[in-house]
């Protein structure tokens, strides 16, 4: 059974207002991704942020 965007899991239906809010946030998010990504997201991963943070400990002593 396929789920519609108004039914995140079987038996749960949420409001059209929630769908509208989600569309707005996702649309803004996609613009932000486009703004910062400058092409491919190869060669990165979320956990690299720890390395960036730690690197700055020495740099800003």
């Amino acid at each position: 059974m396929s789920q519609s965007s108004e039914e995140p899991f079987p038996g749960y239906v949420y409001s059209s207002e929630a769908a509208k809010r989600a569309d707005n946030i996702q649309s803004a998010g996609r613009k932000a991704i486009f703004k910062f990504a400058e092409g491919s997201l190869f060669d990165t991963e979320p956990a690299l942020v720890d390395k960036i943070m730690a690197k700055n400990v020495e740099a800003h002593k």
């Binding site: 997201l41 990165t44 991963e45």
Partner: peptide
């Protein structure tokens, strides 16, 4: 989109 937001984080930070 969710993962893109997280993948971009190291670069933006």
């Amino acid at each position: 989109d969710y993962l893109s937001a997280l993948q971009l984080r190291p670069k933006i930070v």
